[in-house]
Write a protein that binds this DNA or RNA. Sequence first.
RNA 1: GUGAGUGUAGCUCAACUGGUUAGAGCGUGGGACUGUGGCUCCUAAGGCUACGGGUUCAACUCCCGUCACUCACCCCA
Length: 424
Amino acid sequence: MPASALKGMLDTLPDETPRWRLVEARVREVCALFGYSEIRTPVLEQTELFIRTVGESSDVVRKEMYTFQDRGGRSVTMRPEGTAPAARAYVQHRMYLKPQPVKVFYIAPMFRYERPQGGRLRQHTQFGIEAFGSSHPAVDAEVVSVGLSLFGRLGLGGLSVQLNSIGCPRCRPAYREALRDYYRGVVGELCGDCRERFEKNPLRLLDCKRDECRKYRERAPRTVDYLCAECADHFEAVKEYLGDAGFTFEVNPLLVRGLDYYTRTVFEIVSATLGAQNSVCSGGRYDGLVEQIGGPPTPGVGFGLGLERLLLSLENQGVALPGPAGLDVFVATVGEEAFKSGLRTLHALRKAGLTSDTDYMGRSLKAQLKHADRLGARFVLLLGEDELARLSCTIRRMDTGAQWQVPLDEVPSWLLRHENGIER
RNA sequence: GUGAGUGUAGCUCAACUGGUUAGAGCGUGGGACUGUGGCUCCUAAGGCUACGGGUUCAACUCCCGUCACUCACCCCA
């Protein structure tokens, strides 16, 4: 039996879960503030859903999906991203009949079979939001600002917002052709990948990182110059709304996204404190997605935000993150009778809502105190023969060392009295 | 999937150009302090040096293979 998790899949240990809970709490606060409600969808979906929406030519579908036959012989896939499942739920439950827009968020594991690297895992946790039903450019701006607000609340800096518009099915073909025309003469000098992109998905020619391909993109035609009137107006409005909200961003004409369903707005929030995998949040508009799944024509915008990357970036920036919460009370006892009495007191403490624990290792009193200190106990309750005889106990305050004798049955109420130091 | 680097105690790292019982700090258990934590000191446990093979009188050290991890590419959160 191999006692190790699968490649690219991490355990989150007790020392680390508090920081996760902090981030999740902030996510929920921000979502509540912006009017997004939580949705939970299954980990598995029909493979078809992702092939049709994310796109047959995308890398995600071609080589990164965890796909297998279930026992009924159906091809199923562990979700590689969250937008398609949310859109599927929107259609399945006819949420287009509800007041629009429908705004949802999720915190859920995503799976992609890739080679792990700093900030890249096979299972990662994504916080995502989706706003279905409105094509208003102010919604695009809102979506971006949800991400930025979260980062702001967490104290994450060193970010840059990259924004672009890749047009719609009406104007994109003209752009695609212009791009092909531009690259046609130099195809032979491009890398192998780019030669394939030239055929299949010319937009992607723009984000190749190889020098031999990179030098051409400076003078390549830009998406924004080929937008139809509606798309151009939309893009202008998005920028205006974002600017009015006080956010700074950069228009990056080279930004195109890897998933096929995007239309118009695409954006990416990049952190300067991550390695090569520096995109912490990215998304865009997907006006054709719902219809493609079988719903009525419905616009939508959203983003995905990698929580592992967010945590990494926070750590790299030295943002203070919480560790395990300390105990209110540790019950230390000497002798068998005192141990039994201690257990009864422990129950009373817990019943009163005080976080408390005792020693189950038969440690010496001294070692129990030491252990209590490590657990971060604010008070230690001492119970030995002397105390038992008097039906009382010694309460020690760990930060000051002050001690009191308190009758056993009054311990919880004594501790809860505000002046004695436990603040709820 | 491609390329490179690294695998020594729970963690972070030592061990000269191959040389005999593989060390230290932190952490963990116990003690100095017979019923009182943090500081200090003492002490113990903990290693098939990732795994398998080869070279050699001798391998943590050199060679080959496997696996794992890391970084970069592809791509993405």
